[in-house]
Every structure is written in structure tokens, then in C-alpha cells.
Nucleic acid binder design. Structure first.
Lengths: 321, 321
DNA sequence: GCGCGGTATGCGGTTTCGGCATGGCAGGCA
DNA sequence: TGCCTGCCATGCCGAAACCGCATACCGCGC
């Protein structure tokens, strides 16, 4: 069966473009290659790199073999010079090594906390003062770290930690169901509670208040957590607070209090964002504090060391309260 | 001796930026790293890469060690997920491997002559027809090759070859001092000589001419090579040509001939660029041909395979003369 | 409590790698 | 012309790296 005649020119046509495999090679070979190219000599490159000439010779051979077998250098009697292949490889080798150098630098910065991304989350009232102050301090000390921040409720934040979307979260508890085995909790502070009164309220001048004196007041409640806390505390003192309004948003709740529609309990962290025409009086209570605030990290995940540094900034901010 | 008191903040300040060393690693590790990151599993990556799970585990460990010791993955009960370091390394690893892939592709193209740079040189009259025709043919068959071209005299071209500035040169000889040990010469053609006469010259109708019939003519001579050749030939026939004008530039020399100021010898390669108002008559001579034309390469240097392909194109063009 | 899916690790054989010494080649100088 | 020198390649050997195999270990879910 005769093969079909194909016109074949004098010179070989372009070879069929074979799929180019990714070469397996060592970065050491590339570095050696660059030194050899720079000096035009195996011997000099070997001296410079602290190797013998034979090692350099073998490394270049290995690189040539890994790259398809074409020589990268012409071996001349007085040294070597790059072939066309060698000249073509030169910029790639430089780029690859530079890129690896950059990568190593970024990883080092990441490791010692001086750079890289850091993703933190916090619940809303922590963002009123605690977290911003920690952020400011941290940003001064670690200018290279790129911080991203998100707000959320504690359960959502903990999920984000386990799924890997956050590195560190500022969470709170109103009871103590927190330790769950999947997270590490670092205690930041125990919040005390304040009573928010309209400026002209008869009790506004008191230095502190105990709950029984507030049994007859109208109450503004907000989020379920605060309401739960208020309810539990009040019931412990034998009365059921009369809830006049349920207002979730903290700014709105302030407005209701300022308008004299009732009084509210607010946690310490939210206290500093109170408007001037309401008065905050510390609530003295012998039972457990209303909330505990923690910084949480995922237990099975290695936290970036920037997270550790940020935790320190959080502690500092918490200590300043 | 008390140490000077230095204010030390609560959190550790940024560590001193240590000089980052270039990591020594294998590209295999990087590829494995990418597969692991993509699948979130050592086992799956191992299957995909045709290795065992233990090999993948060790490769990742080796990469982590090479990059400073920080883990690149969090080992979770159901697989692994990249740490902050791993996420930071990801784009670099991809870039490095892509770059190596590109480099391998370029080298492959260079090796089979379908790409890469090719630097050729030629003497002036070769550029009148021979080289441009070879170039056109070559460019059609090897569109990926980036050709650069320079013109020069034979000695300069040979120097450029040895010093590595050219890959292939079209050179000529007017005697035979060429084989010098440092170059390989590939014979292209033996040039015959033509006599250039003004259109109305009495001898212009002859089918061919022998030198003795031209002993009484005025001569226009150009480059030293042609002059040498003419002189040698004429002296061999017992007369010394009367040189009326010395004009180096070929276009100008044509003008002198056309104006009837004399006749000239021109080599075959320059014949086709003659203006229509002069007549070229082949010079019949039993002595050696005026010039031999070769393609030369540097002996101790590996010529790009595109050079071989171009040599074939040159042979084809030479055969067509 | 036990099996299951996944990673880490000790062990042995093979391969790679670097140093040492030697060989080969080309150029320069006497 | 012939020796000497400078440079790269290579055979040999000991050490280290690397892979596969088998196994230990650890959470999780049934």
C-alpha cells in the first residue's frame, strides 16, 4: 500500500508543535545558570557559589537535560558563552528567581506579622470604640498589614472562622455557651451595663443605680441579646420589666430614650457612642456581668502572626476602657 | 550595669526585616503544592500526580521547610486548607510555573527552528537578490522566527560570527583564504563574471566575451575585491587595464557605465540589479571563477536550528540562479 | 465504641548529588 | 614544533534526598 506522496521541500519544514511539558528542575540550577552566564565561566561561577567546578558542570548539564537536551552554553576554549537557547532562557530564569525571592519575602513578612492580609470580624458594638482603637494602634505598628474587616453577630463570625473566611473575630457572650471546641477564645473584658436615661430624668443624677429602683420604668429593648440579659436580671430581682418599645437599631433606641419614651440598658462598649442628651448611669448589680468579650480564632487553623499582634492591640484597647 | 530602659509596648513590634534568602526548591514541589491547594487534599493530589500520599506529604513538608518553616496548609480532619502563607504563595507558584512553561516552549521552538531569534549577515551584493529571496522563502516556512539582518564585508562578518553577534553569514572569497579553522563554510555557488557595457557599445551584442578583447577599454572599478579580481585576470592575459574611474558604490558605477565613461566587471549576484540602459555580457574565462559564495557559521558554537533551515533556503535560492 | 477518611512517619532500596581526581581539548608561548 | 596552562567533562565514591510501602495517629460520624 503506497504511502501518499507528500511534497517535501529542500529544507525541513517547521516541526509539528509538540505539547511542551513543564520541566522539572531545581532553582539551584537556575541560579547557577545565571552566575555562569554572567561570568562566562563554570570555574568562576563555582568559586562564587562555593562549589567545585564539576558540580557547576553537572548542574548545567542537568538543566540542559531538563530543558530538552539542547546545550545552553557553547563550550569555548576560554570559557563558555550562552547559545541561542541560553540567551532565550536568561530573562525567564531571572524572572523566576526574582519571583521566588519576592514570594519568600512576602512569606517572611507574613510570618513575623509585618505584612500580608489580615481579616478580622467583630460584632457591632465592638466596632463602636474597642475595635477602631485597636485598629488605629495596630495600623501604626504594622503598616504593611492589609486589614479587612467585617461586622456580624457572634454565631456568624464563628462560622466564618471555622470555614476560613476570617483570621480573628471579636465576639461576645451573654451566657457562656461559647467554648465549643472548634475555637480558641482569648478573654478581652467583662462588660458592665449602663442605664440610659433621658437627660431630665429624676434618676439621671445618681452616681449608680440598682435594678429594683427601675422596676416601674418603661423600657426600650433592642436586640434579643440585650433583651435576654435584661429579662434575666430583672426576673432575678422579682419584677418583669414593662417593655414600651422594641427598637433594634442602637441609634434609634437612643432617640427613643432621649424623647423620654423609656429607659434602656446598654452595654459598656456601646456607651461611648451615646448622644449628649441622654445620661448613662452605671448599673450596679452583684450578679454576673452582662457580657464577656473575647477574641476568637479557629482552633485547628494556624493564625497569621499578625493576628497575634492584633490580639495584643485589642487587649491594649480593652485595658484602656 | 543597668540596661537602658526602653519603652516596650504590650504587643511585639514588627520584627527587624531580615534579609530574605532565595529559597532552594524544586519545581515539582510547587506543582504538587498547586494541586494540593486546588483539591484541598494530599490524597487526591497524589492520585492525580501519580504519586503516593506520603510523597505528597513529604514534598509539601519540604516546601514548607524551604520557605522558612511556616505551614502552608492547615491540616484539618477532612483534608487541608491553605494557611495565610499558602494563600500568599499561590499566585507566585502559578506565575513561576507558567513562566517556566513559557520558557520551555520558547526553547522547544528554538530547538526545532520554528521560533526564536536568528541573526544573519551578508555582503552587499548577496543582498541584491540571493539573500532577499531566501529570506522570503524562509519567512513563509518559519513565521515564528524573528530574523535580524546586517550587511558587512566578509572579514567583519566572520568576526561577528566568532564573537557571537551573528548566527550565520553569507560571505564570499576572491581567492581562497577563507578556511580558517574557526568557521564552517557551506558552499552556495560559484559566481561567474559579467562585463557591463553601455547599451550602444559595439561589443554589447556579443553572446559572450573573452578578456583580451577588452584590453583597450576604459575601466570603471569599484571595491578593492573587484579590482583585485579584475587585475589578476587581466594580468594573466598580459595586459594592465586602464582604470578611468574608481567608483565604490554599485549604483554610481552603473551610472558611469551607462554614460559611456567606461566598462566594468560585475559579479553574477549583482547582475540582476542592473539598470536597463546597460548591457551585461557573460565573461568567458577558463581560469577560476571570480568568487565563491559560502554560508558560514562559527565552528565552536552551536548554530540555532533555524540557521540550518535558513541555510537550506539559501541553497534553494542559489540553485534558482 | 468502632470503622472510616485523611495525614504523618519509620524503614529500605534506589537515585541524585557533590567532591575528588583525572582526562581531554585548545591556545599561547618558547 | 612542542610544552604548559587554563578550562570543561567524567569516572568513582560516600552522603543525602527521595519515593513507595506499611503503619501509626487523629477526628469524625455511625
Amino acid at each position: 500500500m503506497p504511502k501518499p506522496h507528500t511534497a517535501r521541500g529542500v529544507e525541513p519544514g517547521p516541526a509539528p508543535p509538540s505539547p511542551v511539558a513543564l520541566p522539572d528542575l531545581s532553582t539551584v540550577w537556575l541560579r547557577t545558570f545565571l552566575h555562569v552566564a554572567r561570568h562566562g565561566s563554570f570555574t568562576v561561577a563555582a568559586r562564587e557559589l562555593g562549589w567545585t567546578q564539576s558540580a557547576v558542570s553537572r548542574q548545567v548539564s542537568a538543566l540542559e537535560a531538563a530543558l530538552g537536551g539542547a546545550p545552553l552554553f557553547d563550550r569555548l576554549p576560554r570559557g563558555v558563552r550562552p547559545t541561542a537557547e541560553g540567551r532565550a532562557l536568561l530573562p525567564h530564569a531571572e524572572e523566576v528567581l526574582a519571583r521566588l525571592h519576592r514570594a519568600a519575602g512576602e512569606l517572611a513578612a507574613l510570618r513575623d506579622g509585618t505584612g500580608g492580609p489580615l481579616r478580622i470580624g467583630a460584632f457591632a458594638t465592638a466596632d463602636a470604640g474597642l475595635v477602631p482603637r485597636a485598629l488605629a494602634r495596630f495600623r501604626d505598628r504594622h503598616p504593611g498589614v492589609v486589614l479587612t474587616h467585617e461586622e456580624g453577630r457572634t454565631p456568624a463570625l464563628l462560622s466564618r472562622l471555622t470555614e476560613g473566611g476570617l483570621d480573628l473575630a471579636v465576639v461576645s457572650t451573654t451566657g457562656g455557651a461559647l467554648p465549643d471546641g472548634a475555637h480558641d477564645f482569648h478573654h478581652l473584658l467583662d462588660e458592665t451595663l449602663y442605664v440610659a436615661l433621658p437627660a431630665g430624668h429624676p434618676l439621671a443624677a445618681e452616681p449608680e443605680l440598682r435594678l429594683p429602683r427601675l422596676a416601674a420604668e418603661d423600657w426600650i429593648t433592642g436586640s434579643p441579646h440585650i433583651e435576654g440579659s435584661l429579662l434575666r436580671l430583672a426576673l432575678r430581682h422579682g419584677f418583669r420589666p414593662r417593655v414600651a418599645h422594641v427598637v433594634a437599631e442602637w441609634t434609634a433606641k437612643q432617640g427613643y430614650v432621649a424623647a423620654g419614651l423609656g429607659i434602656a440598658l446598654i452595654p459598656q462598649l456601646a456607651a461611648e457612642s451615646a448622644r449628649p442628651d441622654i445620661t448613662l448611669v452605671p448599673l450596679r448589680d452583684d450578679s454576673a456581668p452582662a457580657r464577656e468579650v473575647y477574641a476568637a480564632t479557629a482552633r485547628r487553623r494556624a493564625a497569621p502572626s499578625a493576628a497575634t499582634a492584633f490580639l495584643a492591640a485589642l487587649r491594649h484597647a480593652a485595658a484602656g476602657l
